[in-house]
Amino acid sequence: MATLETRDLHTHFGQVRAVDGVDLDVKNGEFIVLLGASGSGKTTLMRTIAGLEKPTSGDVFIGGRLANRLPPKTRNIAMVFQSYALYPHKTAYRNIAFPLQASHMPADKIRSRVTWAANLLSISHLLDRRPRALSGGERQRVALARALVREPAIFLMDEPLSNLDAKLRHSARRELKRLHRETGVTTIYVTHDQVEAMGLGERVAVMNAGRIEQIGAPLDIYRNPVNTFVAQFMGSPPMNLVLRNGTLIGFHAEDFFPRGRGPNSEDMEQLTFRVVQVEELGSEVLVYGYVAEDEREPPPEVLATLPTALVSGYIAEGAEYPFEVPRPAIRHFDPVTGLRKD
């Protein structure tokens, strides 16, 4: 276990600034998520931390030690690639044992470590199989076991869930959280999926164009985005933005109520909602449309998620309704720079 620090880290490929000045401070044992769209530099940042890419400038400290010039093998990091990168000619057992063999651990100790990791991930019955005889979820467990088996200082994961189907992804997410609780290894987790980021991260760093736009607790970022990029990227669905009186006002879909049916409060912003489409999903209803007061042409889409009980039989497609938003839930942004104004 170790801390991780990057100071003004740059990794450029020719003219492309994949990582463009990143300062990151990860506490010992923390689970931090790098969230960003593809091309935002999150994977390059992780690869630079791993030592697979050389930083153009700036420093990486692992456990307080300057690691810029250390080759990957001496950084004591473990990594799970998106493709899992299992060794196809080795059985699951030999895959998991490989990092231990590389560190010249005695054979009986290797056996007990592999058994420990296999039990932790419930794959003891799969150890004789080659990767091609394993399912996607099983491969992912073998890759995780291989990463965990030698007690790394830092655990790097590059979208490890993206090759799993939706159901498996959900259970794997919970499993990752459990593993982190049980092992306590400092973890850096790269994803483009905000649901994963919200669910997994103790802190989330939202990346864009090689920089960290905002870093903080998931709910804090969700409620208090520093700019419109973060506001639109974090959370599913993203924050609604409406241009009114020359200012962008932002509010989440769950804070957008039909007049008089939301929280009982005087402090409400009144808006007119033109409904385009309604989706009834059982427990909640998704209402798509746009705000008539929006000063942009055409007005961008706005979404309301409402409990079914609240609107059952009330909202019709193509009609116009008075809606309201509690003022404390509203965030204000500069329409030109996109930065928060309040």
Partner: peptide, 26 residues
């Protein structure tokens, strides 16, 4: 795959271990 080579690097394998245990067998 490049990722398999990189995985071996990160797993701490030196040049000859990579050559004889990963590259040549594959």
């Amino acid at each position: 795959p490049r990722e398999v080579e990189e995985q071996a690097l990160i797993d701490g394998a030196g040049y000859f271990r990579r050559l004889f245990q990963i590259t040549l067998p594959m």
